[in-house]
């Protein structure tokens, strides 16, 4: 009876992505400022702590012989290093790419734990991250190539008559990167979490339907497990794709095609 009563109240699958205030206060500073710790802020701090902790454990007390943790970390470092060397060719960008990789990966993985919040499902985080990166990459390109950076918007061998049109198209395509990079990550993670939420809602209804239905529901539950595994894989794949694209954008800014 209790179950049926609770089943009447179904939450929206998108409710999990809401940024909610956990605690806050209004201070009479600079007018009336509201200082609030949201779930987004809390999980950002948690991600930071986890990354620091992971690297502290991976540091292996500065011993020469690696531990199992440090080997895993070294392998990840070597993978990211090879991505940076293959894509950009300059290791000066490795710290940035490495930090970015770990931030997104840990954010996605923490989001896969039940009852938690995924900060990459916040559009302000994803788009903010991609916008910041694109602005940084543009500043990098301008600082390296000065005015010649704008030749990036004119493909070589373009007839003069088509230049205004192509510049417009290239500019839009360049600016679209800022959106596409963030939206790709955001959409994939949101879609996966929403799917899991919807499926789990259905499965919960079925599991609470009686013993026989409970046993029958184990079959779609196996499918649900596979989708959970896929979500786990998406966390890695989207991080890899994000980092790879940032590398290619940096390369574009450095080499101008």
């Amino acid at each position: 009876m209790n179950f049926n009563h609770s089943n009447l109240f179904i939450n929206s699958p998108l409710e999990q992505f809401e940024v909610t205030s956990l605690l806050g206060f209004n201070a009479p500073i600079l007018g009336y400022m509201s200082f609030t710790l949201t779930n987004l802020g809390l999980y950002s701090a948690l991600i930071f702590t986890v990354i620091l902790g992971l690297h502290y454990m991976g540091n292996n007390d500065k011993k020469l012989l690696p531990s199992k943790w440090s080997i895993a970390l070294e392998t990840l470092f070597a993978s990211i290093n090879s991505i940076v060397r293959d894509q950009i060719g300059k290791e000066i960008y490795l710290p940035f790419i490495y930090s970015l990789f770990f931030f997104i990966l840990i954010a996605n993985l923490i989001g896969n734990i039940p009852y938690t919040y995924t900060i990459t499902t916040s559009i302000i985080v994803s788009i903010g991250l991609s916008f910041t990166i694109l602005i940084g990459v543009t500043i990098l390109g301008l600082s390296i190539h000065k005015i010649h950076f704008f030749s990036f918007f004119i493909p070589s061998g373009t007839p003069l008559a088509l230049v205004p049109l192509l510049v417009l198209i290239e500019l839009i395509s360049y600016l679209a990167r800022a959106f596409s990079l963030g939206i790709r990550l955001f959409a994939n993670v949101v879609a996966g979490h929403t799917l899991l939420k919807i499926l789990s809602t259905f499965l919960y209804q079925m599991f609470s339907g009686g013993l026989i239905i409970f046993i029958v529901t184990l079959l779609p539950f196996a499918l649900f497990l596979a989708i959970t595994g896929l979500e786990l894989a998406v966390s890695f794949i989207q991080t890899y794709v994000f980092v790879l694209l940032v590398c290619s954008y940096i390369k574009d800014a450095i080499e101008l095609h």
């Binding site: 179950f3 609770s6 734990i113 789990s200 499965l203 919960y204 649900f224 497990l225 959970t228 786990l232």
Partner: peptide, 16 residues
């Protein structure tokens, strides 16, 4: 502890 759809996700994640 309230049993809800998140419990299914938790169970699934734990098993996986």
């Amino acid at each position: 502890y309230v049993l809800n759809e998140e419990t299914v996700v938790a169970a699934g994640t734990f098993i996986l």
